[in-house]
Design a protein around this nucleic acid. Structure first.
Lengths: 109, 109
DNA sequence: CAGTATCCGCTACGATACTG
DNA sequence: CAGTATCGTAGCGGATACTG
């Protein structure tokens, strides 16, 4: 294994998907394209500000695409790109790992 | 899908494995038990302080175990627990995702 | 060798109020 | 509806020096 060449890429990936809310947002979008308010509804504890910030980041790294429908009021649909869809197996393995290994006592902070 | 029950566990998992250096440390330990200095050698950019802090965290959540051999000088060996070993598939899928999708241009910050 | 101890800047994140 | 704009704070993580 060559750690010098493979470490940086790995850390970039963690930077993207390891941030708070990101995994939850992607998981919602794995169910299909969603509007801003619908993502919020699925993750009620997250603030507007956070959702906006995460969506911009995810869009800028090519994981999410943003479609504007110029109706009144305007409708915005977010969906996963191919790159975003490719995260499915990672998200799912973290999900099942956490179900198996994260204890109840760790849930309250 | 029940987001109310599954979100918290997922976020706890991300809290653990999403921190800086954690993934790299676990990857080193996937190769077998290692001493402090050997982990450092594999991840030269990381400071002592960070390695110490991460190892304590990983030990406290049961991912890593710490063996003290009271020689002179003292020898400490870190290894993955069963819970830690079970992270292999996650680490590997992030690894291969990053090789496929992280661009060269994203590597410099 | 395997850590501790400090100091400290930065920025991630939350809360709240406002807008095209 | 889909965001901005501001403000405020905890704590993450880097640098450096020291130790049993």
């Amino acid at each position: 294994m060559d750690y010098n060449t493979m470490c940086p890429r790995y850390e970039v990936a963690i930077d993207i998907i390891g941030k708070k809310w990101t995994g939850l947002i992607i998981r919602v979008l794995l169910g299909g394209s969603r509007r801003f308010k619908d993502i919020k509804k699925q993750i009620p504890e997250m603030s507007d500000r956070m959702l906006t910030e995460r969506m911009k980041e995810l869009e800028s790294v090519g994981i999410v695409s943003r479609q504007v429908y110029p109706e009144t009021p305007v409708r915005i649909e977010y969906s996963l790109t191919e790159k975003g869809e490719s995260l499915r197996s990672i998200i799912e393995s973290i999900q099942s790992w956490s179900e198996q290994w994260v204890e109840d006592c760790e849930l309250q902070k």
